[in-house]
């Protein structure tokens, strides 16, 4: 790793005041530190958010669940009252990754194979920052790119409780990253189907949403032809394979919801 300065502010305001174009925010560090080790980034300062208590915790708030940005995957897996979200968090990486990695870090990084983007988009969550609230559909922009402005800090993610939801993932057996992951949710605003791992960024499968709105059964997805255009192709899976997985996993998620 190159040299850097390290700051651990105890308030959000102090953290915001330390951010500039040469600094980066440090959450759980499970993406940032490997990136720094490979010398793929050279920040002057790391601003560690771990001492800001208000950024941590799983808080039921009426029909919503607010999860602090610095809450670890393990805490979400153990405490989230939305079972599909708890199960998604419990399937991230390995126990040590879950003990350190955070929801805010994962969401801000927007790795194309990360699990949380599927939960945020599928459950129609709101990403709250120190400046504003950003809806899930506006938050994830492209590969590793989000709607966050430079220096904007995620404070929490608010999930409306769905009527029912399920997340199905075909994971890479070594990393547990999603080769494809699909969140299907019945929400107050209708059926949502969010897909991660398959493309450069999480996306909604609107054709499936429409089909499931009329007939919420695996059968309703049978005749949908998922195109491989624009999907990822790598040593783990071809675009065509991922396209097929989207349908397979969506059907499994619907089947699980229907019990």
């Amino acid at each position: 790793m190159y040299d850097f300065d390290y700051k651990r502010p105890s308030t959000l305001d102090e953290a915001a005041s330390l951010i500039n174009e040469d600094s980066v925010l440090l959450a759980g560090g499970h993406t940032l530190l490997p990136t720094l080790k490979q010398r793929l980034a050279q920040p002057e300062t790391l601003v560690d958010l771990s001492a800001i208590d208000s950024l941590r915790g799983v808080c039921p708030d009426g029909d919503k669940l607010a999860i602090g940005a610095m809450t670890t995957h393990a805490e979400v897996a153990n405490k989230a009252t939305i079972p599909a979200l708890a199960s998604l968090a419990g399937g991230i990486g390995d126990p040590q990754v879950r003990n350190r990695g955070t929801i805010g870090g994962s969401v801000a990084n927007n790795d194309p194979a990360a699990d949380y983007p599927a939960a945020v988009v599928g459950l129609n969550a709101v990403v709250n920052t120190n400046k504003r609230a950003i809806s899930a559909d506006d938050f994830f922009v492209d590969l590793f790119e989000t709607a966050l402005d430079e220096g904007e800090i995620i404070t929490n993610v608010t999930f409306p409780t769905p009527d029912a939801a399920a997340y199905m993932k075909f994971d890479n057996p070594a990393s547990r990253y999603a080769i494809v992951g699909v969140m299907v949710a019945k929400t107050s605003g209708g059926v949502r189907v969010a897909v991660t791992g398959a493309g450069p960024c999480v996306f909604r499968q609107s054709e499936m949403e429409a089909a499931l709105s009329g007939d919420f059964s695996p059968r309703a997805l049978e005749n949908i032809n998922v195109s491989a255009d624009g999907l990822n192709s790598d040593i783990h899976a071809s675009a065509e394979y991922r396209a097929n997985l989207i349908k397979v996993l969506a059907k499994r998620a619907v089947a699980q919801i229907n019990g």
Binding site: R8, G29, H30, L33, P34, Q96, N99, R100, S175
Partner: peptide
């Protein structure tokens, strides 16, 4: 040294963690 193998696991405040993926200052 890439957060994968687990040879460096220690407990931090009662939770297992990979000590190759934490800074001492953390």
């Amino acid at each position: 040294d890439t957060s994968q193998c687990g040879a460096c696991v220690v407990h931090v405040d009662g939770n297992s963690a990979k000590s190759c993926t934490m800074l001492a200052v953390q």
